[in-house]
Amino acid sequence: MTLPADDRSFGPPVIKVEGLVTRVGGRVLHDGLDLELRRGEVVGVVGGSGTGKSVLLRTIIGLNRQVGGRIEVLGQDVGKLRDRELRKLQTRWGVLFQDGALFSAQTVAQNIQVPMREHTDLSPRLMDELAAVKLAMAGLPPDAATKFPSELSGGMRKRAGLARALSLDPEILFLDEPTAGLDPISAAQFDTLVRDLQKSLNLTVFMVTHDIDTLKATTDRIAVLIDKKIRIGTFETLVHDPHPWIQQYFSGVRGRAARADV
């Protein structure tokens, strides 16, 4: 059941998933799943362990092939694209993997420049300037540029991963558990960062998360993966959803604390 998105200020749909069926290791994870993200919207995906949140993300970005259904991203059917077209489409979104997935043999600056070097013909000097811009936008100090991923803390690795995801000025940002493993202060900072970037770059953000504070602070709508389908709504509407899992999720201690100041 897809509730229509609030017509506040969101543009046309950029991600459209219709009747998606995925299977991993013989187990059906999604069965007739529908989801729509509009331009400029931040959507958080929640669900119990093993319900296929990350698989959904990976399927949308083309790392997993679906068994059935249609996935349209930026107007193109991801499942039907040939490799070259898919690679071209991939330059229009950025992905932040759970632990940053930085290339360990390269410095942070080189990591950020990998997509630039591959897909553009910027001059080296401009690339260095732009890498500094992305670094600053991701909230990293300038001296992080020459460090290797192994020399960074978990929070800094995520920020560096975010800077790399933003490297080509993507239109969509996919975040896989962006605040997992961060202390509450860093997590809150990261939430603010995502929100700010979304505003200034008009990004569409698809975020898999467990963190109810992040959901509350950053998302416009929340998609709950239940019974192999998605229930989507705003924080306020989902709190009143009668489904037992949703009730339990939002009535946890942390849920109550977050709801107290709705």
Binding site: T107, A109, D128, E129, A132, V133, A136, K199
Partner: peptide, 22 residues
């Protein structure tokens, strides 16, 4: 109006020198 947030973000936050390489 749509570009104002981006311009102010870049103005306020991006003051570092170009990145160096080892």
């Amino acid at each position: 109006d749509a570009f104002k947030p981006l311009i102010s973000t870049i103005d306020q936050e991006c003051n570092g020198p170009p990145v160096g390489h080892p």
